[in-house]
Amino acid sequence: MLNIKRKIQEGDKVVLYSGKDRMSLVVVKNDNTIFNSKFGNYRIKNLIGVEYGSKVYSNDEKGFLHAIALNPELWSITLDHRTQILFNLDISTIIFNLELKNGSKVVESGTGSGSLSTSIARTVAPLGHLYTFEFHKERAEHAIRDFTENGIKQYITVTHRDACVDGFKLENVEGMVGYIDAVFLDLPCPWEAIDNAVAVMHHGSMLCSFSPCIEQVQNTCLKLSESSFQEITTIEVLIRTYDTKYHKVESMDLVNPYDSTNTINNEEVSNSSSNTDEKPQQRQSTKWGQSKPQSFTVGEMKGTKKDQFLTNVIKESRGHTGYLTFARYIKEE
């Protein structure tokens, strides 16, 4: 996933993109696998040698998809939701505030779907390492499989363990105790793991706890303030994604009482018209796009209908995911 070539190779995981909510992940094999979708059927082996980002037509040439290179963000969107996953914005915020970079050594508990692990591995590779701990055996095993397939297993050590009870020390790993730059906790009772975190952290390293409920945050903050943590802050981040597209906007043609030279609608259309100098090649033939303003009538009244490129907020937004509590470990002397 980290050093993808420009052309698709056998064994690559490729994202087949046919829309924001329509991305599929396929492993490219040199056999007769057919990928079936709403937009036609595709012979997967034909992808070999194709440049990433290319448009790929279906067997009947009526549909197409784009072949896109996999990255941690697309991975977190396309993986099946076998457990609650962390979303991209939380992941971004966690990685930034934990001050991760190539070379960082990180502890994570639990591994969950591995979506954060994958992003962390991308960031800390190749000099750093992630030690991730998962209570559920099946999840740990699944994560190992995914990391292997995604080509990042050399940067991640997955351990099946209850870190609240057994801590984060790995007996046969050198350079762990006192060398951990950042700890991430996504646990039902994160405060129970904080002493164990301290045991492997060094002066100045960062901790983050992710919790959906405020009661968890309250307990965690209390525990952090009783331990040697400073800069304790709790934040919440939400993303607003805008729905941006051509809308058929209807406007009534009315006399403008403030300007004798114009009806209001004409004025408006010329003002707010979108990039009319642009002559897109495909749009002209579709029903959307820069069509000429059309008249319509309601009873005796006239109006003008026109495509405008507008944004509004997507109605069904993701609300709360969790609170993020960050703190810096300051070793007491």
Binding site: Y17, I68, V217, Q218, C221, V237, Y242, T244, Y323
Partner: peptide
């Protein structure tokens, strides 16, 4: 493809008993 305009909304919390 996958064009998205987005905005982030961030809140800080006071967590005290």
């Amino acid at each position: 493809v996958n064009l998205n305009i987005s905005e982030i909304w961030m809140r800080e919390y006071q967590v005290l008993p």
